[in-house]
Nucleic acid binder design. Structure first.
Length: 260
DNA sequence: CCGGATGTTCACCT
DNA sequence: GAGGTGAACATCCG
């Protein structure tokens, strides 16, 4: 589920807990604590304090502790955020089983009785203290055309692989990458540096439009290409059968007719 | 039963 | 150094 659009919804949901006093930290899954972090470390840093700000860079949700460190939350492919028992996204992944508390990997209880829980069936997400934010490129919602040009310049990697590289551009995941390239009419396998200035501008425009439109529709999985992929497998623009390949290590769908 | 899935990291190749 | 591949994580879905 979570690409940056979903994490942005999680961030908005997390705004509710700002200012509340943290009473308890539940870290039942050591695997979920990244690096050498332990439950006690997190407790020492959080209990008795409160969050002063919520931020997001790409797919990373950041909660700044007042007079303390920053809590970093990652959601992997199936992580969800639940605040006061309420999920940000009504549509549940994993069907009716989306609400199994056995998948609660990390939780915070506040002294007002409320809570913030990270529920992740596949355990691909994680928790960090003071994550290294410098490892992430500019957020895809903020990237300028000039920055995008720089990201693609001098790279022999496939265009899509470059867009997925979080250290260069933060937030674009597999579904969003396919959707924006399909909209922009660009072949995901093109060498990144081969794009003309006009093509980079076109990509930037479609990057913005894709993020805006799929936010309105309700998530990363609501793209035209994604929807079509699950039905008859032809390009919604021109009816050409969609091509399936692996690019940048990820399953990739594209239209061989209009994506060049 | 088998393969694949929205992510990240790491080991190992070329 | 730059990229690619495959594995790992655990679970559900088609």
């Amino acid at each position: 589920m979570p690409e940056m659009l979903e994490v942005e919804l999680y961030r908005q949901l997390a705004t509710r807990v700002l200012g509340r006093v943290i009473a308890r930290v539940d870290a039942p899954d050591q695997w979920f604590l990244k690096g050498r972090l332990t439950g006690d470390h997190v407790r020492d840093a959080l209990v008795g304090r409160s969050f002063g700000a919520d931020r997001r860079i790409g797919k990373l949700l950041l909660l700044d502790v007042v007079d303390g460190p920053t809590l970093g939350l990652r959601f992997g492919m199936t992580g969800r955020l639940i605040v006061d028992g309420e999920a940000a996204i009504a549509r549940l992944e994993y069907g009716a089983a989306a609400g199994r508390s056995a998948w609660d990997r990390f939780g915070i209880a506040f002294d007002d009785g409320g809570s913030l829980v990270l529920r992740d069936p596949r355990r691909l997400g994680g928790v960090e203290l003071d994550p290294d934010e410098s490892r992430l490129g500019p957020d895809a919602l903020e990237v300028t055309p000039a920055q995008l040009r720089g990201i693609l310049a001098r790279s022999a990697a496939p265009l899509k692989a470059r867009l997925l590289d979080q250290s260069r551009l933060a937030g674009v995941g597999n579904l969003l990458a396919d959707e924006m390239l399909w909209r922009a009419g660009l072949d995901p396998a093109r060498v990144a540096s081969s794009l003309t200035p006009a093509e980079v501008r076109r990509l930037h425009r479609h990057l913005r439009d894709t993020l805006d439109e799929l936010t309105d529709r309700g998530g990363s999985h609501t793209g035209d290409l994604q929807v079509m992929r699950s039905t008859d497998g032809v390009c919604p623009k021109d009816g050409e059968p969609l091509q399936q390949r692996t690019i940048g290590g990820r399953t990739t769908y594209s239209c061989p007719r209009h994506q060049r």
